[in-house]
């Protein structure tokens, strides 16, 4: 208790206050053990009250605010990333649809071209066949006409020969003799 003895003269020099407060306060107030029970008693009461107020009421309130903010931020970030994913997915499906459509278009163009080509070929073949038929029949007709013409020439020649013989000799020639002579002349 060295402090107490030091404090006493200090109070003495500054003087009148100790007298005004009454002679009981000769000890240095912060070390006056007479006030200890009262201070301890009220400290326990008020600190317990503070602890209860803090732990039951005030701190949960602030924690709830911070928690709500954290949830909000986390939720917003999650939603943003979900939207980003969705955008990417949409973009991918769009590109897939685009390439599908392009493939389909190529397919349709190819099949159409093939079909048209086939049609053209078939028609051309049919046309070729009819044309060849016509040519063949025309050729046959020509050959027939030619043969007929040749026969007419033979007849005309034998007639002409008979006429010539008749006018030259005045005699009649038999048909068989003429044919024989013509055949001889030909060979």
């Amino acid at each position: 208790m060295a402090t107490t003895t030091e404090a006493a003269p200090a109070e003495g020099t500054t003087g009148e206050s100790t007298e005004a407060e009454g002679g009981a306060h000769h000890v240095f107030p912060p070390l006056d053990s007479k006030t200890f029970p009262s201070q301890l008693f009220w400290l326990v009461i008020f600190f317990a009250a503070l602890y209860l107020l803090m732990s039951r009421m005030v701190l949960p309130r602030i924690a709830a605010i911070l928690e709500a903010r954290k949830n909000q931020i986390d939720g917003d970030l999650a939603r943003a990333s979900a939207l980003k994913d969705e955008t990417e997915k949409t973009l991918q499906s769009y590109q897939k649809a685009l390439s599908d459509a392009r493939g389909n278009a190529t397919d349709i163009a190819k099949t159409t071209r093939d079909k048209v080509d086939g049609d053209v070929n078939a028609k051309r073949a049919a046309l070729d066949a009819t044309l060849a038929e016509k040519v063949a029949s025309a050729e046959a007709a020509v050959a027939k006409s030619k043969a007929k013409a040749m026969e007419s020439v033979h007849d005309i020649a034998s007639d002409t020969a008979a006429e010539i013989v008749a006018s030259l000799t005045g005699g009649k020639v038999t048909k068989t003799a003429l044919s024989k002579a013509l055949a001889d002349a030909k060979s």
Partner: peptide
């Protein structure tokens, strides 16, 4: 023990 309500106790209450 003397447990009077003092100025110290008052200020403890003010603190809380």
């Amino acid at each position: 023990y003397e447990i009077s309500f003092t100025n110290s106790a008052l200020f403890m209450g003010v603190i809380v």
